[in-house]
Amino acid sequence: MPQARTEERSAKEQIARQIRRNIVTSTTAAGSGHPSTSLSMVEVITQLFFGGVMRYDVKDPHNRERDRFVLSKGHGAPGLYAVLAEAGFFPVEDLATLRKLGSPLEGHPNMARLPGVEASTGSLGQGLSMGIGHALGARLDGLDYRVYVMTGDGEMEEGQVWEAIMYAGNHGIDNLTLIVDHNKYQQTAAVDEIQPLDPLDDKIKQFKWETTSIDGHSFDEVEKAFDWAVGIKGAPQAIVANTVKGKGVSLLDSEPGKWHGKPIPPEEEAKALEEIGA
């Protein structure tokens, strides 16, 4: 299977800018959606799809041997769609149909309608379990693909996440990597005000996972973390990606508690795109 690999730092940064741009324009055009949720994940998903981490073939999106990316925090769909489009799963122009009637780019990812989507999500807490299923499928079929799951930090409050963490750890499911997008905010308040999570890496470690905590906007650190994860045998790996909700658009990232689920108003769009620089 061809492996997308864009190792040039400047090329990756350019792709990240493009993804940020498309997150902003698609949600502003839709008049709804979660840009700030999507902006915090950009470096991680760019590295996954363009840093040589994941094997996939956009011409054969259901290839049995493909690596899988499950976006458990499904409201980050604009980010997922932007990276899938950039990778070539569907034309970038289709991003303009986000949330519109008839479009497979629904408000939250729907695996039945869009190739590249590995789990239907939008009810928080469920993606890691789906990821374990995908990972066990590899074992059963004697394949060596890997599974990457991204959750939100608020999402970690769902009990099912911990049921899954306990199972994957106890069973040494090592073709599974969890990335927690630790952007410190959830819908109605800061995570610390609702359910303080830290030290999150230590907590997950107690369930027999290998863990690391990184700056989720540093390509250096993100790249190293995935290299590290792939090298671990006998245990699942968790990457706590410390990020900023709304990263790259000052309107959002200067007040990350205020913008959950809100698109950038049309009159602010030009400034946002200028800041992104794409």
Binding site: A30, S32, R99, E106, G107, H108, N110, T121, G122, S123
Partner: peptide, 8 residues
């Protein structure tokens, strides 16, 4: 509810 889609 509209745009948010079926999961919601």
């Amino acid at each position: 509810i509209g745009d948010d889609g079926p999961s919601q």
